[in-house]
Nucleic acid binder design. Structure first.
Lengths: 161, 161
DNA sequence: CTTGATAATGGAAATCATTTTCAATAAGAA
DNA sequence: TTCTTATTGAAAATGATTTCCATTATCAAG
């Protein structure tokens, strides 16, 4: 039964407590957006989220989708990604069925590969760097972005032909 | 004589050969944009570049600045950065007086710190990761983005007060 | 289970960065 | 100096995201 989202229930459903706990109400649009993000491993734009939510709840408007994504992003429940195509993209951050991962972006065809390799290696590096930077610059580091950009197999080949 | 840009001449002035070599003409706007980017260590938006160029050459229009930045970015002479404030920012990539560095971004006040520490460490990690990813996904990696995001000293303190 | 205060919503209009259009201009090969 | 054509500038178009504001729905309190 695919689509049931790997490790089960929507990110653990802890998000609801998170939302209520911060004094926000639990509304249809908020549930719907979380539902959509939980049941995909794609990196959806606001409009794409809107379309999917709209299928279930035609009354929900695009404006609300933007507001909701912003809220969830602010709470750290959702990651906002920039792949350089002029629109923000979103994915569940913690509890994502994908786990900790980063992105490999083809600058030609805009394909995005999520990779989880080298993460061990990376965590070591990140830990050292974060600690060092936090100390030296008195910064409270909350997040990091690591992306590799280049040409995917197809675009690379197409270039050389 | 500050402003003369540390290690001297505009990124080595090799860029002109690069531009001509690729069949592009050497024009006032192109020189002016390179001049502006060479003489600052800030991360300028297109509009900011426009204003500075405009001071010297009032005839140059904003559209051309956009086009020029796009061109220079395509040639790899300029890096396009995204700090999440809804506008692209630019800096000289190679030959920059700043050398290889990454960014530490305050998500509250939008201050950006360029850091060069831990780069050695990082290069090792990057090398391994790039090689591994390139192989596994048959990807030609051309660039990477590493950012740390969080709260700077001031915003952190202001939060706790 | 009501009720009421007010957070949240939806649609339309507004913003704002960036892109496109197109006629006028200028770089540079000949 | 001339000519071809890349480049430019101004204005209009675009497209993502935000703002406005009157309406609606959540949920704490009764």
């Amino acid at each position: 039964m695919p689509g049931r989202n790997g490790r089960g229930r929507i990110g653990g459903r802890k998000w609801q407590g998170m939302v209520r706990g911060c004094g926000y109400r639990l509304t249809i649009p908020r549930r719907a957006v979380m539902e959509v993000l939980s049941s995909t491993d794609e990196h959806l734009s606001a409009e794409e989220v809107y379309h999917r939510v709209h299928d279930q709840y035609p009354a929900v408007g695009l404006t609300t989708i933007y507001r909701t994504l912003e809220l969830l992003f602010g709470l750290g429940l959702v990651s906002r990604l920039d792949f350089g195509d002029g629109r923000a993209r979103y994915e569940l951050s913690a509890g994502s069925p994908k786990g900790h991962h980063h992105h490999l972006i083809c600058t030609k065809c805009r394909k995005v590969i999520d990779y989880t390799e080298f993460i061990k290696d990376e965590l070591e590096f990140l830990e050292r760097a974060e600690k060092g930077l936090a100390e030296k610059y008195d910064f409270e580091i909350r997040d990091h972005v690591i992306q590799f950009r280049g040409l995917c197999k197809d675009c690379k080949d197409r270039n050389n032909k």
